[in-house]
Nucleic acid binder design. Structure first.
Length: 429
RNA sequence: GGAGAGAUGCCUGAGUGGCCGAAAGGAACAGUUUGCUAAACUGUCGUACUGGCAACGGUACCGAGGGUUCGAAUCCCUCUCUCUCCGCCA
């Protein structure tokens, strides 16, 4: 009953009503009336809590008195007080029930509030309103009769979508030969770079329990997006963000331990219910894919600086792979529910002639840490919520798609120089 | 899968109905003192909600939820999780 899981902190909403409304409008949030409903419910909650507390205090005092009298052998006096305690019990029960009911209502409304966008986030409703922050790299000129990656994959027999269909289903490709080696090479390439950038490698479980799904915000909002193992009530992770961030659930770290920088390679599983068609062909969207994720837990004063660092870091990977990319600052309406600010990195897929998202780097400020109860304690001894950030660094399939398409030549597909030490071959042919 | 044990504060760990928000030890922090990589002593040392300008109070929390009782960490029920042994197995 007291384990209220808040999304935004109610106290913050109370004290900054106008600002909350303004910032939600940047997201084009459709239910601003929720804010006032929440404040109203919180008023009720406080009032009820106060009543509950004072009746409990009386009851506690009476119980204590009875105990004292009994010990002194004054049985009659004790019985007299005892007779009066019945009403406390009833009141405590009904006030307690009322309090729980209000808290559930409050909770239900609170989970509907998304994070507040940072002041630098552009206003907007969808992908068209995202702002291109920068573009980098050469758009390649392709050979005649250039092929999209799914045809290249078949031509060189390195990724087999049909076989995956047979043994699992659509969206579960089988990587073969140099295709499989390329996967392994990219994973190691990304992990080594993350390590060099100070991220500590973790190897977490790829299934998580309900509490973890809730901690990072996948539950209850995105329940249908995750594969659910119902017999054991576990979820296949949609990203390493879930297990790695949940490492710090219910944790109070010391201020000097910040920043915490972790990275992890995991397969990721997404049901992607309802998506089909040309845009999700080949590697463009899969049910299972590989990704290296970077996660940071930082002091609130530094989180935006860290966001920029993480963005630069991800870009450095794309540069090393010689891939043309652009960075988008997502508009309010296109940002994830839990994010305060997000950069998307997109690579150019030359044969498809389109940009594909390969990374999303976000600052969640206290939104996740509030759910996780992830706090840090400074010299003053006060615990306060830390900021969390994460980003893909990187997701493999679209990197592979882009590498195949952009680097195709008459004589095969060229592997970028910095990746060759990892693949052990320079060409796929 | 079968059998058993357990879940207490940062950690170890005591506590079987009131004097327990909780002993003790350790860790950590602050101070004193001696002092060359350290020790000794003293103090502080859970979280959340809530009242108050504050000082300082109130309430809740001993895995979760319910019950018994004037009163529950302690008794009862349900659930979850962990550990040990056996079985199976990478």
């Amino acid at each position: 009953m007291y384990n209220l899981l808040k999304m935004l902190q109610v106290s913050y909403i109370r004290e900054n009503r106008e600002e909350v409304l303004n910032r939600l409008s940047v997201r084009n949030f459709k239910q601003p009336e929720l804010v006032d409903q929440i404040i109203k419910l919180d008023d009720d909650r406080r009032q009820t809590q106060t009543q509950f507390d004072s009746v409990s205090a009386e009851a506690n005092a009476a119980a204590k008195q009875i105990g004292d009298l009994m010990r002194q052998g004054k049985k009659e006096e004790a019985e007299a007080i005892k007779a009066k305690t019945g009403t406390f019990k009833e009141q405590i029960k009904s006030l307690g029930e009322k309090l729980s009911a209000i808290e559930i209502l409050l909770q239900n409304e609170l989970v509907l509030l998304p994070n507040l966008p940072h002041s630098s986030v552009p206003k907007g409703i969808g992908a068209d309103d995202n702002v291109v922050v920068l573009e980098n790299g050469q758009i390649p000129v392709l050979i005649q009769n250039a092929l999209p990656h799914w045809e290249l994959a078949a031509k060189y027999d390195i990724i087999d979508f049909e076989l995956g269909n047979k043994i699992a289903g659509a969206g579960f490709p089988v990587y073969k030969g140099k295709g499989a080696k390329l996967q392994r090479a990219l994973i190691n390439f990304f992990l080594d770079h993350a390590d060099a950038a100070g991220y500590r490698e973790m190897q977490p479980p790829i299934v998580v329990n309900e509490a973890s799904g809730f901690g990072t915000g996948q539950l209850p909002d995105k329940e249908g997006q995750m594969y659910h193992i119902t017999v054991d009530n576990l979820y296949l992770i949609p990203t390493a963000e879930v297990p790695v961030t949940n490492l710090y659930r219910d944790v109070i770290v010391k201020e000097e331990e910040l920043p915490i920088k972790n990275c992890a390679y995991t397969p990721c599983f997404r049901r992607e219910a309802g998506s089909y068609g040309a845009h999700v062909r080949g590697l463009n969207r899969l049910h299972q894919f590989d990704k290296v994720e970077i996660v940071q837990v930082v002091h609130p004063d530094h989180s935006y600086q860290v966001l920029e660092q993480m963005s630069s870091y991800v870009q450095s990977l794309l540069q090393a792979l010689e891939l043309p990319y652009r960075v988008l600052s997502l508009c309010g309406g296109d940002m994830g529910f839990t994010s305060a600010k997000t950069y998307d990195m997109e690579v150019w897929c030359a044969a498809q002639a389109r940009w594909l998202e390969v990374s999303s780097v976000s600052n969640f400020e206290t939104y996740q840490s509030n759910r996780l109860k992830l706090r840090f304690k400074g010299k003053d001894g006060k615990a306060q919520l830390a900021h969390t950030l994460n980003g893909s660094a990187l997701a493999l399939p679209r990197i592979v798609a882009s590498l195949l398409e952009n680097n195709q030549t008459e004589s095969g597909i060229r592997i970028p120089a910095k990746l060759v030490p990892y693949t052990g071959f320079e060409w796929i042919n």
